[in-house]
Design a protein around this nucleic acid. Sequence first.
DNA 1: GTCTATAGGGGGATAGAC
DNA 2: GTCTATCCCCCTATAGAC
Lengths: 190, 190
Amino acid sequence: MVKIENSQRTILNLAEALLQDKGFNGFSYAHIASELGVKNAAIHYHFPSKEDLGIAVVKRYRDRFHLWINNARVKDLSPEAKLDWFFGIYTDMRADKGKVCLVGSLEAEFNSIPAGLQAEIGSLHKELLKWLEATLSEGRGAGVFKFNGEPANKAALILSSVQGALQMARALGTRKFRDVVEQIKLDLMA
Amino acid sequence: MVKIENSQRTILNLAEALLQDKGFNGFSYAHIASELGVKNAAIHYHFPSKEDLGIAVVKRYRDRFHLWINNARVKDLSPEAKLDWFFGIYTDMRADKGKVCLVGSLEAEFNSIPAGLQAEIGSLHKELLKWLEATLSEGRGAGVFKFNGEPANKAALILSSVQGALQMARALGTRKFRDVVEQIKLDLMA
DNA sequence: GTCTATAGGGGGATAGAC
DNA sequence: GTCTATCCCCCTATAGAC
């Protein structure tokens, strides 16, 4: 049961949590409705189809990321602090009932989700990579990160490993997630 | 439509492919039955519940891995060649209709799959990590791999990133997967 | 905006004939 | 081992009252 002020917003919150917890094929309108304390049909009023709902969740997730990275409190950080902030997002997800990143969740089920949602998750993934690449590039330029090869490839490696580590932690525990993050940092200091 | 000799085996093949393609919540007995050219109930004769089927798939997957790593053709390879063989498994998955590793697929849906399957996937994940850790340790001892920190942590990082990269490739293309594998190798040569 | 009611389909699973 | 038939549940989605 959740207090309602703005239904639209509350539905998105619940849908996002369910997506990160159970996956797209693992949650239903009924789950949202019962937690919200309303009936099935009320959810359909706000989001006609499940695809609409999924897309809205991903769009809001991306908008939030944009707000963060363009906010001075993140923008003006040092490269190391930026990276720590980024890892903190995932650490918080792990701490929040073992959630995983939307990107990993939806890409694991990629071939059994609607086409519009597939496209949306691809856009989000690209933007996460873009920001991480720029941050790595900036850090290497400043001499605080050390790695060989293209920043784009290192970014792809790091993002993949953090998302994989969130999934791994579900079966093997939070410690494994922390170990991966520490190893990523260690590798960047070599 | 698939030729039937040993139904049990064919069902496992199809179930494994579907799990890697669509996820546990994304496939049904009907999918298997229609591809096999039989009726729904025939599958239930071999595997009474979907959980039974999932567990059998994971068990076979693990047995296969055991056979491989204990076979002289892998066991006697150099550490670099072992690692290349290992990456080759994932490269083949990617090439095979964009499949992902069972471990990543089931852990992404972890909170919406049966408990017995959760336990089984944890065991598999541990064994993959164990082998990778030993291989990295061997390679560092021989001076061909270079990395800081514990082999167990480096193994967790590498396995997470390969599994994450398979998922990423679904939205962003095979090239991204290859980039990650190359970056992993590059980082091991630093 | 939310309700009741319901359509319409798919899912997992079982019983009993062959 | 596979079939037909069926049960029962859950799902997405819609229509129309309030």
